[in-house]
Design a protein around this nucleic acid. Structure first.
Length: 868
RNA sequence: GCGGACGUGGUGGAACCGGUAGACACACAGGACUUAAAAUCCUGAGAUGGCAACAUCGUGCGGGUUCGAGUCCCGCCGUCCGCACCA
């Protein structure tokens, strides 16, 4: 055979050029077609693309190309999540500018992505660090401010006293700053927040409508929002500082009120602060508690600690009963009212606290089948529902009835200015703090004026542009220390004023980029017509690591943008798919150093696999399979793979074997397998051109057995493949193409009237199905099959329904549930026909051993079970 | 601690709604072609016993429902993930 091997790198460059020249993937608004918006989470321009990107964008590209062929008008854009800390860190280390570093990375990564042959409309590309993007984000901010969706409040930050800078949580390692190693302190700063809690209920309830999201993600968001129903109850205080006549707490268990033995308030609670002024020991205790907060690591093991304030609280259901008020380290100011009542018998934390400080433990709920005389609490609280005991008028009720009874009594009782207790829904969700004391982010467009206060930058003065000439040689916020940038006149009164020097969290940038893609050049943040046509995103694909924050913030932004008139949409992503990670074996040399896969050669035989260093032949230890990471040096550079084997090979491997939601292990052997398959397709098409009918030959009137079988295989594969791609079951779809290829190859070894036509048909179907997965090879084969059109422009073939159902079928025959043979019958065979045929089978007769069957269960077209 | 997912050959994984377990691929073994190798093609293979036909066992473990269970139910064991003092 003189057929040359398919030269992937060379042909891939060719087809990428053809697509670019013809603007094949440029999206045009076309109301005559149904729209389909496919989006993969846009990358952070960290330097180079990695295999995770390759997997993510391959999956998205299969969907995009498939939908396009199916007749949808597809939007498949790409951009850059380009603001963020790494650029600023790089600037400090390398004495460059964050913009320079970022744009250089974008150029590299764009070039890399283009070698993947993605069907992306590159004309819509943008980077969030460009003023043409963030100017619109500033407009959104100003509008949210006007609507009360953005506000300022005092909040704690991690403060590095040596570097004099604010640290993100991930920059705090074991309670110390990641650069300076100094002990991190908590510092109060006034910061900007988005009022996401305004939509707590809506964000929670709308999860039910997202039926094309993974159950896991919806559950994670449900837990994150954390809705709980309970009561807010006010207790009168005795011996309290002036002005503190009562204490309000939140509880989900008002039914256990008679089990109360103490009150506990957060160290930051106003009552704690008031009591501290006259009590130095208490003040010292509160300070201790605050320091504990910094080292999140040992929070888990932190012991319950409390301090008796001397204040007493009056039980709301018995004015003669008082309990002590403690400050406790486990009560959070941010949740509920920052105060609780302690019921040790019904809550494990309260129990530990009570045991430590010798407080009473009164059992108030026992299991339904419990004995009130003997039921006691030892070292485990009883937290389940049950029957009330030791609770006066509640005794004998179940917990639900007791809740209602207490609610009725507290709502009618009054204290001070209103009812003692009110029904209340609490959420775990907190407002979203967006202030970052950094340079490389979207400036928050407000001005602080001594007389006018916080003044939003007027629309006519937008955008607030980052100054190019910031310095990065010392820690701290470059915007704040810039000599001129922050000094401006107040837009209201004209007096000297200062710009806000905080920039926005980069999660803000990624909370609406998918909207901007629908009209990336619009003069306003959103083009209403384009947004209405394209949104919501039909299929969003990305990593599970964004299951909570990014997706929740984007859902919030849709609501906020709708409230400010920019959008009319609640949910941004109709369907979500979370893909697994790319893993690789790890290798360690004798000296314990990690070794990269590129430096290692694997030899394997029946006795196992061994790894050696290519350079020296020295043996290398094969370690566990881990997520690709720089620290373990088990990464494979997509550039190397693509330049050596081609993009199609990398794409095909990513889609094969592992289900897309699960982790995939990148292996050299697997890549070799993909490469072999590419050559196999190449040869098969060559053979099909030689042995198949000429292009455009009319269909023969009849086919022999081989032709008929090949046609059925082709159409059945088409039907199943399409279904699997639609359900993103790429690994199964891939297996089907392997199978069809084998069937086609085998058929070409035969000869029969009509078979050449069937061969051409099967080859064409195979190539068309291959199109979304290995687009370059498919174009090449399409041309070889005699077409001068682009495969990328071909409509998706429709299976011939008549070929999907067989006239005769083979079904399994069981005796007592054990398979004893099989039976080939007409598809429409009646149960009695099947029964009769079954009783002729050797295997059945042998298994029956002369006995006659009790009954025969016939499941049409499925199975027969003879019960003896 | 709470919540969730998963557990199938040597490996990755298939198996629609409860109906022939192991598709497809990798690795392996044998064969063909070749002076040889590479490449390619063909064949084999869950385990045990048997020359074979075939039989028995087999989807983490133990029970259950069913004519029939990888799939459904109950109880364990293991692995992974998320949240974590949320009152």
């Amino acid at each position: 055979m003189t057929l040359e091997r398919y030269n992937a790198p060379e042909r891939e460059a060719h087809w990428q050029q053809v697509w670019a020249d013809r603007e094949t993937f440029k999206t045009r608004e076309d109301a005559s077609k149904p729209k389909y918006y496919v989006l993969e989470m846009f990358p952070y321009p960290s330097g180079r693309i990695h295999m995770g990107h390759v997997r993510n964008y391959t999956m998205g590209d299969v969907v995009a190309r498939y939908r396009r062929a199916k007749g949808s008008n597809v939007l498949h854009p790409m951009g850059w999540d380009a603001f963020g800390m790494p650029a600023e860190n790089a600037a400090m280390q390398n004495k460059t500018h964050p913009a320079e570093w970022t744009y250089a990375n974008i150029d590299t990564m764009r070039r890399q992505l283009k070698t993947m042959g993605l069907s992306i409309d590159w004309s819509r590309e943008f980077a969030t660090c460009h003023v043409d993007y963030y100017r619109h984000q500033q407009k959104l901010f100003v509008d949210m401010l006007a609507k009360g969706l953005a506000y300022r409040k005092s909040s704690k930050v991690n403060w590095d006293p040596v570097d004099q800078t604010v640290l993100a949580n991930e920059q705090v390692i074991d309670g110390r700053g990641w650069r300076s190693g100094a002990l991190v302190e908590q510092k109060e700063l006034t910061q900007w927040f988005f009022k996401i809690t305004q939509y707590s209920d809506d964000l929670l309830e709308a999860l039910a409508t997202l039926d094309k999201w993974p159950e896991k993600v919806r559950l994670m968001q449900t837990n994150w929002i954390g809705r709980s129903e309970g009561m807010q109850i006010r207790w009168a205080l005795k011996d309290a500082p002036k002005g503190h006549t009562e204490l309000e707490i939140f509880t989900t268990r008002p039914d256990t009120l008679f089990g109360a033995s103490f009150m506990a308030i957060a160290p930051d609670h106003p009552l704690a602060k008031a009591a501290s002024t006259s009590n130095p020991k208490l003040a010292a205790f509160c300070d201790d508690c605050r320091r504990m907060g910094t080292s999140v690591a040992d929070l888990e093991s932190a012991e319950k600690q409390g301090f008796d304030t001397g204040i007493r609280a009056v039980h709301p259901l018995d004015p003669t009963w008082t309990v002590p008020v403690y400050v406790a380290n486990f009560v959070l100011m941010e949740y509920g009212t920052g105060a609780i009542f302690g019921c040790p018998s019904g809550d494990q934390r309260d129990l530990e606290f009570a045991r430590k400080y010798g407080l009473p433990v009164i059992p108030v709920v026992m299991p339904k089948d419990g004995n009130a005389e003997t039921f006691a609490i030892d070292d485990e609280a009883y937290v389940d529902d049950g029957v009330m005991i030791n609770s006066r008028f509640l005794n004998g009720m179940d917990t639900v009835a007791a809740f209602k009874d207490v609610q009725r009594r507290l709502e009618t009782a009054t204290l001070g200015n209103g009812p003692v207790g009110t029904l209340k829904v609490q959420f775990r969700l907190r407002d979203w703090g967006i202030s970052r004391q950094r340079y490389w982010g979207c400036p928050i467009p407000v001005i602080h004026c001594k007389s006018c206060g916080v003044v939003p930058v007027p629309d006519k003065d937008l955008p607030v542009v980052l100054p190019d000439d910031a310095t990065f040689d010392v820690p701290g916020n470059p915007l704040d220390r810039h000599p001129t940038w922050k000094h401006v006149a107040c837009p209201k009164c004209g007096a000297e004023a200062e710009r806000e020097t905080d920039t926005m969290d980069t999660f803000v940038d990624s909370s609406w980029y998918f909207v901007r893609f629908t009209a990336p050049a619009a003069a306003t943040p959103v083009d209403a017509t384009a947004a209405k046509y394209w949104l919501p995103v039909d299929q969003y694909i990305g990593g599970i690591e964004h299951a909570i924050l990014h997706l929740l913030y984007s859902r919030f932004f849709c609501r906020a943008m709708s409230a400010t008139g920019h959008l009319a949409l609640k949910e941004p992503f109709g369907a979500l798919f979370t893909q697994g990670m790319v893993n690789h074996e790890t290798y360690r040399a004798k000296d314990g150093q990690w070794v990269t896969p590129a430096e290692v050669r694997i030899d394997s035989d029946a006795s196992g696999r061994r790894a050696v260093l290519i350079a020296t032949g020295e043996p290398v230890e094969i370690g566990s399979v881990e997520k690709m990471s720089k620290s373990r040096r088990n990464t494979v550079d997509p550039d190397d793979i693509i330049s050596q084997y081609g993009a199609d090979c990398a794409r095909w491997f990513m889609l094969s074997d592992s289900p897309p939601e699960r982790d995939v292990e990148w292996t050299e052997a697997g890549v070799e397998g993909a490469r072999r398959f590419i050559q196999r397709i190449w040869r098969a098409v060559d053979e099909a051109v030689a042995k198949g009918a000429a292009k455009g030959t009319p269909m023969p009137t009849g086919f022999g057995a081989a032709g008929e079988a090949l046609r059925r295989a082709g159409h059945k594969t088409l039907e199943a493949f399409s279904r699997n791609v639609e359900n993103l079951r790429f690994n199964v779809a891939v297996a089907q193409l392997y199978e069809l290829t084998s069937t086609l190859t085998a058929a070409m070894g035969q000869s029969e009237d009509g078979l050449p036509w069937a061969i051409r048909e099967a080859a064409e179907l195979l190539i068309q199905m291959l199109g979304p997965m290995m687009p370059h090879l498919a174009e090449e084969c399409w041309a070889r099959l005699g077409y001068n059109t682009l495969l990328a422009d071909q409509p998706w073939p429709e299976p011939d329904k008549a070929l999907l159902v067989d006239d005769t079928i083979t079904i399994a025959v069981q005796v007592n549930g054990k398979r004893r043979g099989e039976l080939t019958v007409r598809r429409e065979a009646t149960s009695s026909e099947v029964e009769a045929a079954v009783m002729q089978l050797d295997g059945v007769l042998r298994a029956l051993d002369g006995k006659s069957p009790k009954k025969i269960i016939v499941v049409p077209q499925r199975i027969v079970n003879v019960v003896a």
